Simulated assay, not measured.
Amino acid sequence: MTTTFDRYRFAQVLLDGGEPLEALALLQPVEEEIDGNAAALLLLGRAYFRSAQLERAREAFARVVALDPTDTYARFLLGRALERQSRLGEAQVQYRVAVAMSDRPEYRERLDEVTGRLEPDGG
């Protein structure tokens, strides 16, 4: 019998191997069961994001942020999903929070990129 944890671990291997749809096939049946687990929701969101299911990715990342508002990686990924949906103002907010809590260069790069695209003169 496959446990939820087994599904999670195998889905992680599949996603890391570039197979987001296969990872989703393992995670979606237990989505309600993992709803309160930030790590599992983050993995689910990453699988949605990598398979270009941006609204579902946004929802999963937003649930992670609701569970742990200090998770800078979840905020960064929420910003990425919003940015890919052309919701630049909302993405900028998430990037700003991530940058304020972490000095990771990729967070600053995304914030600067989105901020430049939001400025009237294009940067």
Rank of each mutant, 00 (worst) to 15 (best):
M1Q: 11
M1R: 10
T4S: 09
Y8Q: 06
R9D: 14
R9A: 14
R9L: 14
F10V: 13
L14Q: 11
D16K: 15
G17N: 10
G18A: 09
E19I: 12
L21V: 12
L21Q: 14
E22S: 12
A23P: 01
L24G: 03
L26M: 07
L26Q: 09
L26R: 05
L26E: 08
L26K: 02
E32N: 13
E33N: 12
D35T: 14
D35W: 13
G36D: 09
G36N: 10
G36Y: 08
G36A: 13
N37G: 01
N37A: 04
A38K: 02
A39H: 00
A40E: 07
G45V: 00
G45C: 01
R46S: 12
R46N: 14
S51A: 10
S51E: 04
A52P: 00
L54D: 00
R58V: 03
A60H: 03
F61C: 01
A62E: 05
V64K: 00
A66S: 04
D68A: 06
P69C: 04
D71M: 03
T72Q: 13
Y73P: 06
A74P: 06
A74R: 03
R75P: 05
L77W: 13
L77S: 14
G79W: 01
G79A: 14
A81Y: 09
Q85A: 12
L88D: 06
L88E: 02
E90P: 10
A91I: 04
V93F: 13
A100G: 11
M101C: 02
M101W: 06
D103C: 00
P105K: 02
R108A: 10
R108N: 07
R108V: 07
E109P: 02
R110H: 13
L111H: 07
L111G: 07
L111V: 06
D112R: 15
R117P: 15
E119N: 15
E119C: 14
P120L: 02
P120T: 10
P120D: 06
G122I: 07
G123C: 08
